[in-house]
């Protein structure tokens, strides 16, 4: 990456691998369980968090020297909540269809612990540009896990990807269903997201022993 110094590039690449917000920091689990029953929702949530975390980190970083430490959490909460509400209002006025798709994610974004976690751990102590990169990196790390989980849950639970039936028609018994394959309805339940995240953590830690805690 010619644009970014090595140190800055690490801000983006680290959360994708060895410092992933979901599998290593174990943040943002709640929304990872809630919305990964289909791939499209995972993708939409990933993009929404990418936006909010990128912009929110910059705003908090710009304000970092004037925020009173006693009420910093409330200030962070207000920043993320108003950011999300303003975006929602603008979308409702000018991109109504899109806002309908996103509406259910609004509450989930505000309460996403990754956002508060990055404000608190990074943006309060670093400049706007580095905070922006950190926000983008963590949001991408979050999105990657969401998409992996969403891929398996939708494929095995509904036999489709992005709503497109890749395994054939379950009702008319075409494709793999003709030889007796059945969708696993259990994959649509939230606990299965936890199990897939657990499998990802397992794979990740067996490849990189440094990540294993005592």
């Amino acid at each position: 990456m010619g644009l970014l110094s090595k140190k800055d590039a690490k801000l983006i690449t680290d959360p994708l691998t060895d410092n992933n917000p979901i599998t290593i920091q174990v943040l943002g689990i709640c929304s990872a369980l809630a919305i990964t029953a289909e791939l499209k929702a995972s993708l939409v949530m990933g993009i929404a968090v990418l936006f909010v975390l990128g912009v929110g980190n910059v705003v908090i970083s710009l304000m970092r020297n004037i925020i009173p430490s006693k009420i910093r959490i409330i200030v962070q909460l207000i920043v993320v909540a108003s950011l999300v509400i303003i975006v929602d209002q603008v979308l409702k006025a000018y991109a109504f269809e899109l806002s309908k798709t996103l509406s259910v994610f609004i509450g989930l974004i505000i309460t996403n612990c990754i956002i508060m976690g990055r404000f608190e751990a990074f943006a309060l102590g670093n400049g706007p540009w580095r905070s922006f990169l950190d926000g983008i990196g963590n949001a991408l790390g979050y999105a990657v896990i969401l998409i992996i989980v969403g891929f398996f849950r939708e494929l095995l639970g509904s036999g489709s990807l992005f709503g497109f039936p890749v395994l054939g028609d379950a009702i008319e018994k075409t494709g793999v269903y003709s030889i007796g394959y059945e969708n696993n309805g259990f994959m649509l339940m939230p606990p299965m997201a936890l199990i897939i995240v657990g499998l990802i953590i397992w794979v990740q830690r067996s490849r990189n022993k440094d990540l294993i805690e005592d």
């Binding site: 009173p68 009420i71 200030v75 108003s82 509400i85 303003i86 603008v90 409702k92 006025a93």
Partner: peptide, 24 residues
């Protein structure tokens, strides 16, 4: 700081909401 924040954020939200209301 808390007072200033509430005033700024409150008016920002109120302004957005009322200016976009007809469209919404």
């Amino acid at each position: 700081f808390a007072i200033a924040m509430v005033v700024v954020v409150g008016s920002l939200l109120a302004f957005t909401a009322s200016s976009l209301r007809p469209n919404i």
